[in-house]
Design a protein around this nucleic acid. Sequence first.
DNA 1: TACATAGGTGTACGCCGTATACTTCCGTTA
DNA 2: TAACGGAAGTATACGGCGTACACCTATGTA
Lengths: 262, 262
Amino acid sequence: MYAVLPLMNPWADDRKAGRMTDVLKADRRVRLNRDRVLQAAVSLADEIGIDSLSMRRLAQELQVVPMALYKHVSNKEELLDGMVEAIVAEIDPPETGADWKSAVRLRVLSARRALQRHHWARRVIESRTTKTPAVLAYWDSFIGMFLEGGFSADLTHHAMHAIGGRMWGFTQELFDDPAVHAAATPVAMPPAVQSEMLQQMAELYPNIATIAALSAHDDASVVGQGCDDQFEFEFALDLLLDGFEQLHSGGWNSKLGLRGTA
Amino acid sequence: MYAVLPLMNPWADDRKAGRMTDVLKADRRVRLNRDRVLQAAVSLADEIGIDSLSMRRLAQELQVVPMALYKHVSNKEELLDGMVEAIVAEIDPPETGADWKSAVRLRVLSARRALQRHHWARRVIESRTTKTPAVLAYWDSFIGMFLEGGFSADLTHHAMHAIGGRMWGFTQELFDDPAVHAAATPVAMPPAVQSEMLQQMAELYPNIATIAALSAHDDASVVGQGCDDQFEFEFALDLLLDGFEQLHSGGWNSKLGLRGTA
DNA sequence: TACATAGGTGTACGCCGTATACTTCCGTTA
DNA sequence: TAACGGAAGTATACGGCGTACACCTATGTA
């Protein structure tokens, strides 16, 4: 079923081609590592669909016994997290020297392309609860585009939610949990550790920290309660409805493109 | 493990409480039916999460052997389809006599509420490929709100996609497949049958038919190719970006609400 | 050359969806 | 009122899944 000779050439026939030691040296299979596992998982999911991607099937693809994978990812959840990170890495970095609007536009379209290359990506992203460093870094740099364009932290915050709905799905609770990118330790942390983590987070993701500070400060309610989802949702919804209205009363049609009215 | 006496009172202790025939009559468990199964599935998913919802767990909840469920839904996929239909049924019907904008607004917010009551709903909806009648009927009546508000079929079409992104997730391919709500017959249909289905579809969902006819006619490309996803995506994206721009240059902040500028 | 340790293996367990074949229930009709 | 036929529920079994645990093997360093 699986390779008979561990760590050896999987093309078993080749074993006939020389003395054992030769074969051992020449044909030894490249060792696995986390990146090879993730990369293989991504392209296998592209091929056979995310529902058919199992640890066993992936192992087979890598010509390895299923349990071998667990030396590189601790379980399937972490595999999926890693696959998401791999996709985020495909998104282009922000255009330098462009105005905020075209910078944001280009970046969103790049993200969309990445998500379209892997049609399972959206569903997986939405199923993830832990935010990994790569995702946080992406959001941080995204926020930076607005801030550098002169947006207030306030408007940036809501714009991020509105855009986020387009890219990731329903309103995200990005800023809800301060312990956001720790490996979700089940034990409660002492306050000292917590504040140190916040400190560290602010260094790594300064723009996220800016936004988070604002919304924690803004509503005088319980600290760390996060955003008002309903507000965020209606904000984006009403932008769209107002847009429809303008187009409608301007007699817009799709041959004009969106610049047909103004 | 499962009920010892088939079709009998699951509270096994009660069996001591009388002659067998009495018990048989008095305590017989209500028979299952499709609705009871779906309803139980929805609230069980609410309780334990969609990932923990299995046919076996659901059967246990209904005090029945797992295979009993298969008399009412043909497999788990169909169960999930049914759960989606149950949620769509929770969305309020359109407000009568209101202008298009507030009608659409209220309806979207009602849909959002339904989706929020069942936090697993979005993910399940996105995983579904077959469009069920209840979903089609919902979309049809939704389209009707725009058309009755005087919108062109063209603008309605794009508005639906833009709103759809907010409600269901990434751009949907609603109009792609003419055989859309048939049980996805794997065998190719003779053209006569196909056109009859189209006819039937136009009667059941006249508004969808209106929109579909437009986009099939609009781009002179292959019939039935569906919408230009990229266009739909950029349409909604640019509406948002234009909105951000207006708010930004108007010095908007969130205490103003969206009417702070205009 | 020996050894610690990281990488890979084999086996086993308890879940999962569901095919098949069966028993039991119950409304209809004689 | 008895018998019958279809619908509802059951019993058993199979192959696939994620992964715990114990083990073996390869490899870089002392």
